[in-house]
Design a protein around this nucleic acid. Structure first.
Lengths: 335, 335
DNA sequence: ATGAAAGCGCTAACAG
DNA sequence: CTGTTAGCGCTTTCAT
């Protein structure tokens, strides 16, 4: 049978409260009795029951992380594993377990049951909207909740941490401009998204008013095809390409190279996301990296403060900066 | 304040035990009082406290998953996210949370604390050895534990699920042989590993006694260099290459193409792992896929049976078959 | 079927 | 510093 605090108390010849006291106050065990307690616990192989502790403390030292995601072409989004790793490390560092659920959006019922059953001190939500039923449980429980990297519109009731793509894109364009580029093509996903808006306003800021764009729906092959078409059209080629994600940047580079042109001597290419493949392209891709460790840190800060503070903590809204990762796919503009 | 079972009892005008009874027995609420209970619970927004339940049931409906991993060149192993997704889905399907910890092997203390604090019904362990301190906690707690995809030697005290690479490799070689290949190069990681052994015994089985090998430490660039060297050496080239992982297969394909040769017309290439990039090579890579969903299913079956059964369940040891994924990088042997 | 009551293992307030 | 005791919220006998 399980060794409980009572067994330790008996073994050490003290009361349970003394055992609890001795084991929790990590102060020097000057007292002879404390030493006895610690020895007894050791001898018996006593391991405190986390559930009982949770019941009395009303905290579980674990945080739920829900990632709404869907395989595309049988693949997960490349940075999701990075996100998972960031949260795992950040939570573990603080002695918390990460309860992870990868939600494919197909079965809200499972998710709802999970959240209801959740013995978690807070929830991190990313990648999609929060279903109403879940939201209700969160409210009833007064469960701290934070949304990170949301693609959906902000929600003032719930804290969130965003990546400020605008700043990173501005930095990227600045990098290109400083290399002499004025004719920069935007390989965009769809019209009107935030990255596209940031691209346009960055150009304005640097005094460039002509905007060239292609829309490729985040699709590598489409970007390849469109870029190939552009090259074959014998239109004047841009000196640089900014792609709104790395996959499209990779497609563009492939098209450029297949046409016998060189990156970056003939055309500079810059991506966004810093996916794994970005390090392996030839030349390695200059790109914009989201600092997911920072996202995890801020989110955990908030959630843990909510848990530990006696007062109600107001929702926060923070931006995390991106970093420009300079590799070899960008260089001076050709003459 | 939190709504408890007492509040519901008061609201419904019954005792707490009746509430518990009515809410847990999902039988038809024929009884008028049961209906009252359910309505009262609904009205008050009652959500049972999972921790209190756990204390009584001594089960938490959550399973710890520890993945020992290390970034290589800043990247995670590509199939780890697949493994995580498989366990997440499998556990959620059964109403369990996955408590995930990505262990970088740098800090056993965190891990030990985590396991001690674990309110989990069982542990899945993968990718590395179990530290003694952790093992001790597992034993004391009598915590069900299963090792999956272990690279280390089996451990009879602990259940495990292995991928039977031998069968998959045999299938791959059979596929090549059926296409007329007799001269097959093994691009191996290091001498003496299980994949290499499987390769050799498969060749024997098909009556091929000559073994050609290169050792490339799972490294794509090394495989590229070695393959290039081989091609330039003007030795007779193999008609097919079996690489012990996809990364090396990709390096080999690159070398072949850079030399002006074609895959698969001049050389067939087959990989192992079915990483994401394998779908995107040109031509798409034929490879061996580990069925991680099956691994997750077996592991969860075992752990949950351990938890739910009153008797002690003996450790199991199971093999999971691999699948040969036929894409376009293999074809008939050249004349 | 229902209610009273005994815990599950632990912490913390209280009194000594 | 130590022991006694009252819960944390729930499930589960055991009577009724």
């Amino acid at each position: 049978m399980r060794v409980t605090i009572k067994d330790v108390a008996r073994e050490a010849g003290v009361s349970v409260s003394t055992v609890s006291y001795a084991l929790n106050k990590k102060g020097e065990p000057v007292k002879e009795s404390h030493k006895r307690v610690i020895e007894a616990a050791e001898r018996l192989g006593y391991v405190p029951d986390a559930t009982a502790r949770s019941l009395v403390n009303s905290r579980t030292n674990s945080i739920g992380v829900v990632i709404c995601t869907q395989k595309k072409d049988g693949e997960y989004n490349p940075y999701e594993v990075e996100l998972i790793a960031s949260f795992s490390a950040e939570l573990a560092r603080r002695g918390n377990w990460m309860c992870l659920y990868l939600d494919n959006g197909k079965d809200d019922a499972i998710l709802e049951k999970l959240i209801i059953d959740a013995k978690v001190d807070g929830i991190v939500w990313t990648g999609g909207g929060i279903p109403d039923k879940v939201r209700r449980v969160i409210n009833v429980r007064n469960l701290p909740c934070i949304v990170v990297l949301s693609k959906v519109a902000g929600d003032m009731e719930i804290a969130n941490v965003q990546i400020s793509s605008a700043q990173g894109i501005r930095e990227a364009i600045g990098h290109l401009v400083s290399l002499g580029h004025r004719d920069i093509l935007d390989v965009s996903s769809i019209p009107g998204n935030s990255r596209e808006r940031a691209f346009k306003s960055s150009l304005e800021e640097f005094g460039i008013h002509e905007v060239r764009q292609m829309f490729c729906h985040f699709d590598e092959n489409l970007a390849y095809d469109e870029m190939k078409k552009l090259i074959e059209s014998e239109e004047k080629l841009p000196t640089a390409v900014f792609a709104e994600n790395d996959n499209m940047a990779i497609g563009v580079m492939r098209a450029v190279k297949d046409a016998g042109l060189r990156v970056p001597q003939d055309i500079s290419v810059i991506g966004y996301d810093d996916i794994q493949a970005a390090r392996r392209t030839d030349p390695p891709l200059t790109t914009i990296r989201q600092d997911l460790e920072e996202v995890a840190r801020l989110a955990c800060d908030y959630l843990i403060e909510c848990r530990d503070s006696k007062e109600q903590i107001a929702p926060i809204s923070k931006d995390v900066a991106t970093r420009l990762i300079l590799r070899k796919s960008t260089g001076p503009a050709r003459e």
